[in-house]
Amino acid sequence: MIRIAFAGKGGSGKSSVSGTFARLLARRDRPVLAVDSDPLPGMAYSLGIPVDDHPTPDDVVVEGPEGGPKWVLRPGLDAAGFIDQYAAAGPDDVRYLQFGNSWGHWSTLQRGQHAWSQVVREMDPNAWNVVGDLPGGTRQAMFGWAKYADVLALVVEPTAKSIQVARRLRNITKAEWSPEHVVVVANRIDHPDDVQRIHDALERPIIGAIPDDAAVTAADKRAAAPLDDGSGPFVDAVEQLVDTVESSYDAVS
């Protein structure tokens, strides 16, 4: 099973890439769970799920035991049952698990985050391919929210700011719980030197180079999934990215 999380600077295109990646992977007859831990969730749009807010109902969790997590899944509900009942169903049979939304009540957000963490931690590793979308910046990645992933893909634009954030994220490899592989996806490439420039700055394997594609901006403006507009430079490049990741996993297993 593939377990990959996408991180990077805000606005670098993580949600567009991760949502499209999840659906293309699912089209290869793989069960895919898309996990969105951004409190300003955007992955639903890029998946083509017509809800941007899919909170966990409050009564899904109960207070946890003393010394343990504040909230735990209610008795009788396990990770598989949670996904079955509460993960949103998306196109291409992708299931979508949202961590919460920062404009809900803080207590609902906190309960949802605990439920999300428990589900991601306890789900059967052989049941789902997991594609994660982290919020922009370094905070969540550095605090272990991508522990579920074997591969952390840094989505990097050819800008100084985006590269700077990725350089900080690269230090995650020093953490005990770091994903095994930290790789780079170069996004919005529109100059022949862009990929080399990103590679020179980050010194990490670049597993995908996605061209700047006006169709993605147009889809964003319609709150539509880039994939639903058919193929094009962006979708074709993400398809190649899926090929690369899939063949890397095949080579290891």
Binding site: G10, G11, P39, L40, S102, W103, P135, G136, G137
Partner: peptide, 9 residues
């Protein structure tokens, strides 16, 4: 401020 509404709140 950082992206989103966290700092603002």
């Amino acid at each position: 401020l950082e992206a989103g509404i966290g700092t603002l709140t």
